[in-house]
Design a protein around this nucleic acid. Structure first.
Length: 113
DNA sequence: GCCCTGACGGGAT
DNA sequence: TATCCCGCCAGGG
């Protein structure tokens, strides 16, 4: 697992560090893996995350406004919201309630870069 | 091999 | 404060 294992792999490793009940953003993940600004790619990686072996909590990644912009990539349009609520994150109108309080940015670059 | 697009974000206007 | 614009990197036509 080094910087040559692929951009996607690094994204998954970072996302898997997000603890249950907390959420992060595409930009934060991108910055965590050493590619600030590549937030778009992070989203693309999440879309492909379901075909990746292992569990990747893609539902814990939302955009900077706390909106569930990637809900359409899930089995059902409400799956993402239900997963978040089941972890204690309140969602209203496709948006995380009190996003700034649930936001998590404690990525450990250790083992990724 | 070129062009377009995509779960975004930040700086400029 | 609200919009617009451009860069980020990979994949598909």
């Amino acid at each position: 697992m080094n910087r040559d294992d692929g951009f996607f792999f690094r994204v998954y490793e970072a996302v898997k560090q997000i603890p249950p009940g907390r959420v992060s953003t595409y930009g934060a993940v991108a910055a965590a893996i050493g590619s600030p600004g590549a937030s778009r790619m992070v989203g693309w990686a999440m879309n492909k995350a379901f075909s990746y072996p292992g569990f990747v909590p893609a539902h814990r990644v939302v955009n900077r406004n706390g909106q569930l912009t990637g809900k359409h990539a899930f089995p059902n349009a409400d799956t993402m919201q239900e997963l978040l609520e089941s972890e204690g994150v309140q969602v209203s109108n496709d948006q995380v309630v009190d996003f700034h309080e649930f936001f998590w940015d404690g990525f450990r670059i250790s083992g990724i870069l």
